[in-house]
């Protein structure tokens, strides 16, 4: 084994590899050969199993070079295709987004400016981006290429946009409509916050709004720590999970067949309309409830008792339970 390892070390030196790298490769081979011998490999068969040293060294040198060039190409690609733009709103601003397949993440800006970045192959001609009359508009596509690509199964990759919004000045309204794009909101604050997707998922963490509306057909909605005066959650078939939901006024929920779970929080009024989807809330404290279902089950299960005024409670074949 030592003979083989020494020969390998010499062969790697001939390839002009760095000493540290040579020793690392030799150590790896020592480990592998010891393991092979422990598993019954005869010492004279080392070369046939691990390769002739010159061939192995040449192959290691060429793989090492290709790793280096891949790294360079990668960083070059990142530099040339990344998009970043900053807009400076002077007062309350609006955001209007229309996307098809590209994903969007909204985060909190560290300064008073709006920052928009894209982290995949940037195709500027496919997007319309403007900031006029206090309104940031991002839409894809300008005409419809992206949209068509979506249906024709084109090869273009979906992009990922990141939008950083300042808390001051305030975001007066944020609306986003997408087809399959996923939307993620992280610490987003807006007076009006409206999201609508067909099959994209909506994920929100630590968001605050005066009026909020999340709407999806088959995507899922997942939200934690949401504060709003009133919120409307509407889904057709996607399932949803909302936790720590605190509303000053009304939470309105409409679902056709998607199930919806609420965990923790409070609201003044809770309105639930479901066809066949189940609605269940735990440790969620409404003052007034109006629950209507066709065949879906509606349940409200809290660990402590609170006064709940039942405004309406109707179901055709579902079960409605309020406890305690």
């Amino acid at each position: 084994m030592e003979h083989y390892l020494n020969a390998l070390r010499d062969a790697l030196k001939k390839q002009k590899m760095a000493t540290l790298e040579i020793e690392d490769i030799v150590a790896d081979h020592r480990e592998m050969i010891e393991e092979a011998i422990a598993n019954g490999l005869q010492p004279e068969a080392i070369e046939s199993m691990f390769g002739q040293v010159d061939t192995l060294a040449a192959s290691l040198a060429s793989e090492s070079q290709s790793a280096e060039s891949a790294k360079k190409a990668d960083s070059k690609k990142k530099q040339s295709t990344q998009y970043a733009k900053t807009f400076s709103p002077k007062g309350p601003y609006h955001v209007q987004i229309k996307l098809t397949i590209d994903d969007l993440t909204v985060v909190k800006s560290k300064d008073a400016a709006i920052h928009l970045t894209a982290d995949s192959d940037w195709r500027e001609k496919d997007y319309l981006i403007s900031f006029e009359k206090d309104t940031l508009t991002l839409s894809a596509p300008k005409a419809s290429p992206s949209f068509l690509r979506f249906f024709t199964g084109g090869t273009s990759k979906a992009m990922h946009f990141t939008l950083a919004l300042p808390e001051t000045p305030v975001c007066a309204s944020f609306t986003a409509e997408t087809i399959s794009s996923d939307i993620g909101l992280l610490k987003t604050t807006a007076e009006t916050l409206k999201l609508k997707t067909i099959s994209g998922d909506i994920i929100s963490r630590d968001c605050t709004a005066n009026a909020l509306a999340f709407n999806t057909v088959s995507g899922t909605i997942e939200s934690t720590h949401l504060e709003a005066e009133s919120a409307s959650i509407s889904l057709i078939s996607g399932d949803s999970h909302l936790s720590q939901l605190n509303l000053g006024n009304t939470l309105s929920i409409e679902t056709v067949s998607g199930d919806l779970k609420v965990q923790g929080g409070a609201t003044k009024t809770l309105l639930v309309r479901t066809v066949s989807g189940d609605f269940s809330a735990t440790d969620f404290y409404p003052e007034k409830v109006s629950l209507r279902s066709v065949s879906g089950d509606v349940s409200l299960k809290n660990s402590r008792k609170s006064d709940i005024e039942i405004v309406a409670k109707k179901t055709v074949s579902g079960a409605i339970k309020i406890a305690p």
């Binding site: 199993m49 390769g51 192995l56 060429s62 793989e63 090492s64 891949a70 790294k71």
Partner: peptide
């Protein structure tokens, strides 16, 4: 896999 092309590839993939 007699001619051991695996290790050099494993090493490159780790480097990447």
């Amino acid at each position: 896999v007699k001619d051991n092309t695996i290790y050099p590839i494993l090493r490159r993939l780790s480097k990447e």
